[in-house]
Write a protein that binds this DNA or RNA. Structure first.
Lengths: 331, 331
DNA sequence: CTGAAAGCGCTAACAG
DNA sequence: CTGTTAGCGCTTTCAG
C-alpha cells in the first residue's frame, strides 16, 4: 500500500496489454456501463486482486476534485466531550467512505483559523468545527466556497449550518426539577462564561428561578475560569458554602466541574446524598457510578456527530439543527 | 481555501506574466536559491498574499510523492488512554508540519488491517498504530515499503519500531511496594488477558510475590472480559471478597477497572482508606481526586506520542523504545 | 468494445 | 535571471 513499489493503473494496463482507461473503468465498477467484455473485466480484476492493487487516492483526489476526506476541528482531544464527538464523526464518516483529518485549536481563535485554512488547502470536502468565540473566519471560509458544519456551538451573527442542543431549555428544565423537588437556594456553578452556550444555560437557570418566584442571588453564582485548577474550584466551593450556608442545590453548567466538587464534598464530609440535589448538563460514565442521583441532561453526542457528518455530506437538509437532550430527572 | 474558485500557481503566473516555476520557487522559499530577482519575488509574494493564495496540497503531494500526512490507527477514541495518545500525536505532528488522519479499529484485527490499507492508499507518509493481537499485517505492510511505529504494544515475533513501557517491571515494582507496605494477600484484577501487555503485568505481579516468598493464589486472580459491564466487574469483586475475605490489597493492571471497583467498595461500605492498599498501572485525572493514596505507575503518554511521531518522521533513531513509567508509591 | 490523450495543480530537471 | 516541459496516477471525453 505504501508509496514505493506500488502497482499503478498504468503498470496493470501494460502488463495486460489494455489501456489505462479500461482498467480504470473496470476497477471503478463502470465496466459494464462502458461495455468492456466480460473476459477483459475478469482479467483485469483478477490481476488487480493478485497483485494487491490499491488506487492512489491522492491522484484520484486531484483528478476528481474531491478527496473523500473531511476535516474535524475541535479544541482538544483531552476533554472526553470532544473526543466523543471525534469518535462519532470519525466512525460515521468512515461508514460513508470518508476519511477524517483531525486538528485541534486549543480553544485559540487564530490557531483555529489557521487550521481551517490548512484543512482547506488539503482539499477536504468539508469541515466540522466546534468553534471558539472568535470564529469570524467561518463566514469568509464559506463565501470562499468551503463547506462547514458547526457542532455544539453556533457562531453568533451567522446562520452557518449547525447541530446544537437547546441550552436554555435544558438548563431551565433541570433547575425547575430541582425546585419541584423542594430546593430553593440553588447555586449555579459555571465556567467559560463568555461562551454563548454557557450564557444560555445561565439564562435557563434564571428563568426557572423567576418562574418559581425565587429571587436570584448573586452569591449563589459560582464561576471559575476555563482550565481552572482543582484548587480554584475548591476555593470557589468554599466561598459558596461560607457565604451561603443554606445552599441546598447545585446546577452545574458542565460536567468538568462535577468531579472536583464531588471530591471536595467527600473530603470535607459535606452532605452529598448521591447527588440528589445536584443537576448537570452532560455527564460522564463515571458519574452514574459515583453520583447516581444527580439529575442530568444527557447530550446526544453520538447523534450530534452523525448528524453533522450527514449534513456535511449532503445526506440530510442543511440547516440549524437543534437536538434534544435526554433528560434524566432523579428523585 | 476550498476547492472552488481558488487561486492556482498558474493563475498567479498568468496574472503576473511570469512562469509557474518562478511562482513555485518564490513561494516555496527557493527564490534566492534559484536566483529570482528581488523585484519579481516581491511582486509574486505580494500578489499571493493579497489574493490569499493557498497551495493545493493534494497536487503537491502527488508531485512530491509525500503528503506531509501521517495516519493514526487506534482501537477507540472513547477510551481516554487512546485519545490522550491521539492528542499527543496530533499535536506533535502538527508542530512538525504534518497533518494526521485518524482511524479506529474497534480492536478488530481485520478492520485494523483494512484501515491500514486505506491509509496507505491515501499515501500517508507513515502510520502510528496501537495494534490488536492479530496484527500480522504489520510485517507485510513494512515489506511493501510502508513506515510504521507501534505504540503501547509490540507485535509478537516482529521487531517493528515501537514505543512501549516495561510492563513487567512496572507491575513488579508496584506489587513489591504493596508487599513492603505489609500486604500479603494481594489480588490482581485484570482484563484482556490475551494481550502481551497484560500478560507481562501478570508476570510482574507473580514475580514480586515469589521474590517475597509469597505463594500466588489462584483465587486472588480476578479477571473480566474486555468491554465487561459494570455488573460483571461487581460480580468479580464479590467473588473475590467471598472467596478471600482476607484480601488486603489489589493490583489493577489497567485504569478501566479502578472506578467501577471504587464505586462498588463505596456502596458496599467496604474499607477503602483512600486506596492505600491499591496499585494501578496508568491513571486518570479523576483518580488523584478520589483515591489519592493509590500507588500508580504513570504512563508517559505525552512522551509516547511525541516519541512515536519523531521516530516515524526520522527525527530520532528507529528502534524498540522502552519508556519509563513515573512511579508514584504512596504510603 | 477499446485506446489515445488531455488535464487536475504542483515540482523539478533542463534550457536558454 | 527566467521559461518550458515532463511528469506524479487517476478520470473522462472523444475517437475509433
Amino acid at each position: 500500500m505504501p508509496a514505493s513499489r506500488q502497482q499503478t493503473l498504468r503498470s496493470i494496463s501494460q502488463a495486460l496489454g489494455v489501456s489505462t482507461a479500461t482498467v480504470s473503468w473496470v476497477l471503478s465498477g463502470q465496466g459494464d456501463a462502458k461495455g468492456i467484455s466480460a473476459a477483459t473485466q475478469k482479467r483485469v480484476r483478477d490481476f488487480a486482486a493478485e497483485t494487491g492493487y490499491r488506487p492512489n487516492m491522492v491522484a484520484r483526489g486531484l483528478s476528481l476534485g474531491s478527496t473523500k476526506t473531511i476535516g474535524l476541528l475541535i479544541s482538544s482531544l483531552a476533554d472526553p466531550f470532544y473526543s466523543s464527538i471525534a469518535k462519532a464523526v470519525v466512525e460515521e464518516a468512515g461508514r460513508l467512505g470518508y476519511s477524517t483529518m483531525i486538528s485541534t485549536s486549543q480553544s485559540d481563535g487564530s490557531k483555529e483559523k489557521e487550521m481551517a485554512a490548512l484543512l482547506g488547502s488539503r482539499q477536504v470536502d468539508g469541515i466540522i468545527v466546534t468553534p471558539t468565540e472568535q470564529a469570524d473566519w467561518v463566514n469568509s471560509y464559506i463565501s470562499a466556497g468551503g463547506k462547514i458544519v458547526l457542532v455544539d456551538r453556533p457562531v453568533p451573527g451567522s446562520d452557518t449550518p449547525s447541530v446544537v442542543i437547546d441550552n436554555r431549555e435544558s438548563a431551565f428544565r433541570l433547575v425547575s426539577h430541582l425546585i419541584r423537588e423542594g430546593h430553593r437556594r440553588i447555586a449555579i456553578f459555571t465556567t467559560a462564561h463568555n461562551l454563548v452556550n454557557m450564557q444560555a444555560r445561565h439564562e435557563g437557570y434564571i428563568q426557572a428561578l423567576e418562574e418559581a418566584g425565587i429571587e436570584p442571588d448573586e452569591r449563589l453564582f459560582c464561576q471559575v475560569p476555563p482550565e481552572a485548577s482543582i484548587d480554584q474550584i475548591h476555593a470557589e466551593i468554599d466561598r459558596l458554602i461560607s457565604e451561603c450556608p443554606d445552599v441546598d442545590g447545585i446546577f452545574f453548567t458542565t460536567h468538568v466541574l462535577v468531579l472536583p466538587t464531588y471530591a471536595h464534598y467527600l473530603k470535607a464530609g459535606l452532605p452529598l446524598d448521591q447527588g440528589k440535589h445536584w443537576a448537570c448538563i452532560h455527564t460522564l460514565p463515571d458519574f452514574e457510578l459515583l453520583i447516581p442521583k444527580m439529575s442530568i441532561a444527557r447530550m446526544p453526542i453520538e447523534n450530534m456527530g452523525i448528524c453533522a457528518v450527514d449534513m456535511l455530506l449532503g445526506r440530510c437538509e442543511l440547516g440549524n439543527n437543534v437536538l434534544r437532550c435526554q433528560l434524566e430527572l432523579k428523585q
